[in-house]
């Protein structure tokens, strides 16, 4: 059994509105799937169907081979789930909530304390374990939700925006944690932070308007963007015109986009023809022309660019 999470043509209608439309995906052990899409794309709804919380209008889902509607208990046992917004009982403490989950999950009583303490340490909750949950900050609440999902060391994790509301350090910690536990689990995380996908996901699925519109390794997806292998050059504004014209004259360059920055600077995005490697030609051309640049580096936002291209609504695309 290598397909630990399977969605098979999931459809969800809310009244007239089709929130999820024929979404199919599989996640194998060791994979971290980044589920991307703009707000309202249907990520949470898909995840709710994967956990069995919502019944699909049509289609099937299974967790570790257990159909979530006909073998729901078996599926829930091997699943750790962080629902959107990390809802938790406000009048409980992290300690009592985690104990409740451990008890419900049939962790033997002699192991329970250790498991709870482990998950508290993993998510750095030590300082607030005895504080009632409604007094915790958003970041701590999110981490209690994560601790709850990790408690029983589940084979499958479904995390709906696990880093939402965390500060940059906490985001980093959570990503490290996910990376650490990933090798022997199958994980889906939803996010709209693209750097997160580059950082931890082995695969990315982009959905918009309920439909899967791209599925592949993040680097593979980035290749589909015209900005793949693009170079960005920052220089002072007075040199922009000249730099632009000599760079555009290069054979391997398709176009040069200009964006002005603060402090009398501008950024040129040099887009290669057919994803060719143009870093060296760009450097030498600017050098020969004695155009001193402040920085020259590979453009990092290819995935973001693809995301924007794919998820902007059709009518806006037509207008553009």
């Amino acid at each position: 059994m290598t397909d630990m999470i399977v969605a098979d043509q999931l459809v969800k209608d809310f009244g007239e509105k089709r929130a999820v439309d024929q979404v199919s995906l599989t996640v194998k052990r060791g994979e971290v799937l980044g589920f991307l899409g703009p707000n309202g794309a249907g990520k949470s709804t898909t995840m709710k169907m994967l956990t069995g919380f919502l019944k699909p209008t049509s289609g099937q889902a299974s967790i570790a081979g257990h159909d979530v509607s006909t073998a729901s208990m078996a599926a829930r046992k091997v699943l750790g789930y962080l629902p959107e917004g990390a809802p938790l009982y406000p009048d409980m403490t992290p300690w009592s909530l985690l104990h409740f989950c451990a008890e419900v999950r049939n962790v033997p009583s002699e192991l329970r304390r250790r498991r709870v303490i482990e998950s508290i340490e993993r998510t750095n909750l030590q300082s607030v374990v005895m504080q009632s949950i409604d007094t915790l900050s958003k970041g701590f609440k999110r981490r209690v939700g994560l601790a709850q999902a990790l408690l029983h060391d589940p084979e499958v994790l479904i995390l709906d925006e696990p880093t939402d509301g965390l500060d940059p350090n906490q985001k980093h910690e959570v990503r490290e944690l996910i990376r650490e536990i990933a090798p022997d689990k199958a994980i889906i995380i939803s996010t709209h932070i693209l750097e997160e996908v580059d950082a931890i996901c082995s695969r990315a699925v982009i959905i918009a308007d309920g439909r899967v519109i791209a599925d592949g390794a993040p680097s593979q997806l980035a290749e589909q963007s015209p900005l793949f292998n693009a170079i960005s050059v920052v220089l002072s504004t007075d040199k922009v015109q000249q730099a632009r014209s000599i760079l555009e004259a290069l054979d391997d360059v398709q176009e040069v986009r200009v964006q002005s920055l603060a402090g009398g600077l501008a950024k040129l995005t040099v887009v290669p023809a057919a994803s060719r490697l143009i870093l060296n030609p760009v450097i030498s051309t600017l050098g020969e022309a004695k155009l001193e640049a402040i920085s020259i580096r590979p453009e990092a936002s290819a995935l973001e660019d693809l995301f924007r291209q794919l998820t902007v609504s059709p009518d806006k695309q037509e207008a553009a």
Partner: peptide
């Protein structure tokens, strides 16, 4: 109202 039902019903409780 609190959304905890999503946690509660996805725990392995019949």
């Amino acid at each position: 109202r609190q959304g905890t039902i999503e946690l509660f019903l996805t725990l392995p409780i019949p």
